[in-house]
Each structure stands twice: as C-alpha cells, then as structure tokens.
Simulated assay, not measured.
Amino acid sequence: MIESEFRIKDIKNDYVWCHTRGKTIYDDNKRAIRVIGKIVNIDLHKKELQTLEYKAKRDPLTGVYNKSATKDLIDHYIQKHSDTKHIFMIVDIDDFKSINDKFGHLQGDKILSFVINQVKMIFSSGEIIGRIGGDEFAVFIGDISNKETVFIKADLLQRALRSVYREEEYEISVSGSIGVSLYPRDGKNYNQLLNCADKALYDVKDQGKDGFKLFT
C-alpha cells in the first residue's frame, strides 16, 4: 500500500494539499504492471489544522506567542544553539493596574496590544516575543556577539515602550520596566533565565520604574 500527502498546483495556479492512497499490481512474474488508487483534495482540512495549530501557540489578544509556546520555543532554541550567547528580557507595563482601574479593562486590552505592536516593529521575525502574564511579556534574542549588544537592545526596547496611546478623547502615556538575563551566565533554560530576569525587573520597579536592569 502506498500512502502520502503532497502539494500540487490547481488550474488557478494555486498550491493545494492532496492525499494519495494506492497499491501496486503485479503480474505472475511479480513484475509491477500498474498502480491503482485515488487522489483526494485535503486542502481545506490542512488549512483548518494549520489554523488550529497557530491558535494553540498564540495569545488571542495580542497575536504574539502565548506562555507555553514561548517557553517551548526558547528552550528549543537554546538546545540547538547552546554554544552561543542569548538575551532574555521580561517586560512589565508600568502602572497597568491603574490604567485598567481608570479607563476600564477594554481600554487596557487596547493599550496592551498597542504596546506589543510597538515592540514587534523594532525586532525581526527571528526573535521570540511572547505574552507570559497579564501585562508581562518576554523578548528573547539569540546569538548576540558582545555585551554592548545587550544594552543596545534593552535601550531600544525601553524607547519603544515609552509611548503615548491616543484614541478619541484618550491620550495615555505608557512606559515599561525591563529585567534582563543572559544565557549561559544566568541560566541554561527558560525557567532559570525568567527567574533571574524577574529579579532584575523588580529592582527596576523599586527604583522608580521606566528603565531596565541586567541581572547581577
């Protein structure tokens, strides 16, 4: 029995997924003389599966990776690139609870999406951005060349967070606090890097917020 999945071009020149199943017919001398079977268009089924897989990894509000996917992706990246240095940053939007209390959770959700979009614009698709808590998200940057890059990236992130959200009668100033940890110095996996970055984050909060600190 032969069974496989593949893509072919349809009459509109679009690729579609197909599934084929068949078997080889042999003559009395055990020589293959033909193959019989059928090809079924499974493109809709494939797209539904891809959509489900995408949604399973994404935060529904912001579109970035959810907590589970963020952890898995970072751990997987570290395993494949264990001999280079990486940056892990945890970000907390300053006074987000006050924003929710004053303007409502719906407006708070809009501001959270706005802030994360600001962050997405300054990083490439190769970097991992994920929402790991209510107003907390992580940024992971792989294969950094030197320590100066750490400060450049953290400063770039802080500048992106320091913004103003505008909508009709609203004009809300936003900032964020950032804790930074380094692989392999501060940890060998997601949980260890998160723990160190989280400690640095709370130091920033204690010192007045709207800044970043490298774990020491």
Rank of each mutant, 00 (worst) to 15 (best):
G104T: 13
L73M: 03
V64W: 02
T70G: 02
I141S: 08
S125R: 10
E168T: 12
M89Y: 03
N41Q: 02
Y170F: 14
P184E: 14
L112E: 07
E168W: 00
E48L: 15
M89I: 10
K47H: 05
P60T: 13
T24Y: 13
D186P: 07
H45G: 05
I42R: 11
R131W: 01
A56P: 00
S125H: 12
K9T: 15
L156R: 15
E168A: 12
D109L: 03
I116K: 06
K85T: 06
Q207W: 03
T84Q: 06
G176A: 14
S145L: 12
R185K: 15
V16A: 01
R7Y: 12
D203I: 13
Y170R: 14
S98M: 03
L49H: 06
K205C: 14
K30R: 14
S173R: 06
D109G: 10
S125P: 00
Y202K: 12
C18I: 11
I33C: 05
L156D: 13
M1K: 07
R185W: 05
K110T: 12
K57A: 05
T51H: 01
T20Q: 03
E53C: 01
S82K: 04
G133D: 07
N146S: 14
N117T: 10
S145E: 14
I132G: 08
I2D: 01
I25Y: 13
T62G: 01
K199L: 14
Q192A: 11
K9V: 14
D95W: 05
N13C: 08
V40C: 02
D59G: 03
G134R: 09
Y26A: 05
N117M: 06
Q118P: 00
V119I: 15
S98I: 07
N195P: 00
L156C: 13
K205S: 13
F151Y: 10
S177L: 11
D143Q: 06
F103G: 00
S98T: 07
I93R: 01
N41R: 02
D43V: 05
Q192T: 08
D27A: 04
A56W: 01
L61D: 00
D14G: 08
K57G: 00
T20W: 01
F123E: 00
V180D: 07
Y190H: 06
D203C: 09
L73F: 08
S68K: 12
N41W: 02
F88T: 01
Y183E: 05
S113F: 03
T149K: 02
L182V: 09
M121S: 15
L49V: 15
G22H: 05
K57M: 06
T51V: 02
A200R: 02
D186G: 08
D206W: 04
R34Y: 15
E48T: 11
Y77N: 11
F88S: 00
F103C: 04
C196L: 09
N100Q: 09
Y77F: 13
S173P: 00
I172T: 04
